[in-house]
Design a protein around this nucleic acid. Sequence first.
RNA 1: GCCGAUGUGGCGGAAUUGGCAGACGCGUGCGACUCAAAAUCGCAUUCCUUUGGAGUGCCGGUUCGAUCCCGGCCAUCGGUACCA
Length: 804
Amino acid sequence: MSYNHEQIEKKWQQYWADNKTFKTVNDESKPKFYALDMFPYPSGVGLHVGHPLGYIATDILSSFKRKQGYNVLHPMGWDAFGLPAEQYALDTGNDPAEFTAKNIATFKRQMNDLGFSYDWDREINTTDPKYYKWTQWIFIQLYKKGLAYVDEVAVNWCPALGTVLSNEEVIDGLSERGNHPVERRPMRQWVLKITEYADRLIEDLEDLDWPESLKEMQRNWIGRSEGANVTFQIEGTDKDFTVFTTRPDTLFGATYAVLAPEHKLVAQITTAEQQVAVDAYLDKVKTKSDLERTDLAKEKTGIFTGAYAINPVNGEKMPIWIADYVLATYGTGAIMAVPAHDERDYEFAKEFNLPIIPVLEGGNIEEEAFTGDGVHINSDFLNGLGKEDGIEKAIAWLVEKGVGEKKISYRLRDWLFSRQRYWGEPIPMIHWEDGTMTPVPEDELPLELPKADNIHPSGTGESPLANITDWVNVVDPKTGMKGRRETNTMPQWAGSCWYYLRYIDPDNDNMLIDPELAKRWLPVDIYVGGAEHAVLHLLYARFWHKVLYDLGVVPTKEPFQKLFNQGMILGEGHVKMSKSLGNVINPDDIVASHGADTLRLYEMFMGPLDASKEWTTNGVDGARRFLDRVWRLFMNEDGTLSAKVNGEEGGELEKVYHQTVKKVTEDYEHMRNNTAISQLMVFVNEANKVDRIPTKYAEGVVLLLSPIAPHIAEEIWQQLGHSETLTYAAWPTFDEAKLEDNEIEMVVQINGKVRAKLKVAKDITKDELEKVALADEKVQEHMAGKALVKLIAIPGKLVNIVIK
RNA sequence: GCCGAUGUGGCGGAAUUGGCAGACGCGUGCGACUCAAAAUCGCAUUCCUUUGGAGUGCCGGUUCGAUCCCGGCCAUCGGUACCA
């Protein structure tokens, strides 16, 4: 007989809600544990079976820690600003706020159906003015610290739509909606100076308990490289330009220089003879997408400006070229080319017949660039030196002559923070008619997003907020000066940069977070989410946290002490689940047919949490079968407790029970939920073979199962005679002494192959073990006529006999 | 190209200071129960030419002993890119 999941799951969900079972009350007498999920964007399609994978894992950990006596914080909320709601509003004329609220209600209902143990009293929503009041407050602090500034940045401008598009809205140079041409156009944008924190963002990775591969990705993304800036005079003028190089020691091999097409000097230095050719080249580059300039470019392109630079070390003339392989956004937007020792410069020099002078020994410049380490040649005062010494001496020389300095460059760029959208946090700044700019006074926050009937693009590149005149225009009540509000809004990243702080103190109107509570709960003990957020979200959140640390708002340098990336759930055939393939599994269907406990169990049993796994219907059936077995083990058909469950501990199940408690406890601790489940299956298989299950073992196993399958566990727990929820029951313990018998089985190998198995005393000595092994009949058989070469006997492990 | 990860039965996956390869589940086969079927229970299930042999992507190395450590290669997945 199977249990009735619909009835039992509803019953306990109701009980938990009525009793506020999972409400987190600050309890200083207990150690704290903060388990956090990456909160979702509440889309219109609801939860997908991939979403709960991580949520189940943190829920298990939370449940486990509560029973181990921790004061657990396990909240959930909504990252609810974002493009889809705005697009929906544009398409249908509905209010994005209403649409979002509806989606949130669906997500919340689905999560509750899965039995998650969230403290909903701490629910947060990034679109709630009470929440974004503090997002805006953080922005003002960034501004006051000089970390938020306005700059002209090239964006994707679509003239036909009259709006700026994100990269993902542009496909092959055309707008995703309507296929209109898109061009790069510089516009006034807010930018956050994340580069100022680059070194700290690298250094502080050290102490974090994150996957090494993820730390490596962040380091590479920040891309710190040490080198030098070198200044080159332009022949026959008083102009100069600076290049960044990691190899100033190869300066004697620099035979030409290259400017990015966007470089400011291009217009000034191009000679009359070259003007037409240069203009043609610049035109060609403008039409190229980033992809064409980088990925797809098989051949180097470029054009000579007609101008020459002077190499400061030897006074040689170097032609100045323009090429799109040099990027305006990295370093100084200009390079010195050392074709003998750089592959890109080598290709370019070959293409345009520029001289190649080797300055490092080794390699063959007839065939390819030599990028290895070698002794310097053709380099005057650097000759004979190795790489390290050469760099050091070259920089010293540059500094002495006043033409260069040591310099560190980052691949990381400052964070483009404004969006020309309606559905985002308004940036709380006012531009005054006298040209000055001030933040909205902090006591006037939140600066609420105005209700709008029409959120169509302004057409000027400004956000739809520009159309709402009584919101945009302001007058200073003291001076009478007129002003205009900033119409840009913040990107979706903003709200998700600090939400983990607000859960700690969600209703505080006076400050972002109470410092005492921050001290109590930070850092987050476990943060689980998808690997797609490996760089951007995790880097932005770390950046804001560090700024808040500098402001004294938070007491820790880092927000997330431990991080875990869950894998993906794929459709059958190991393909992504997608609407177009029609293979999307809706958790609601599984909850209805098999129950939430089954879904939770199955998702955890599929394989390691961090792996990509394939969804199979047979697997779900198997998970349900196990819960049915559990139910039948403890319960009668009428839902009362089986008579098998009785009496004192001990008996046939003693060993397997203690093994199970040990293994499951250790596995939960390390989020190895798949193997914890197999151990529970082993116990259930054993328990089915015996006539009596000691009551204490039954209770223990129900507790061990409860983090994964909380509803069925509560129901059995109640039938075991408990009137209270098992949420805060004490976690079962095990006794090391009961894990093993006095007699253990040991293996005898001959030449590495298992030939015999022996039953021996647990504490057998090495000598005795050798004797017993050699005396064994099968061993004797194999050894007949052979000479003993070596005998390895390790009590508790094995015996290996080497013969010849 | 570079960086990272992974590779184990028919399938998902177990096995870590180097010590019995294949736990647990799925599937399959056989049996019990049943008028019959489903459900349930029990047994079996890496492969082969089976007194034995081979086997954790492939080739080699270290070791008494390698899924695990080292070197080389192949494949798949993810990230990323003229970063000077």
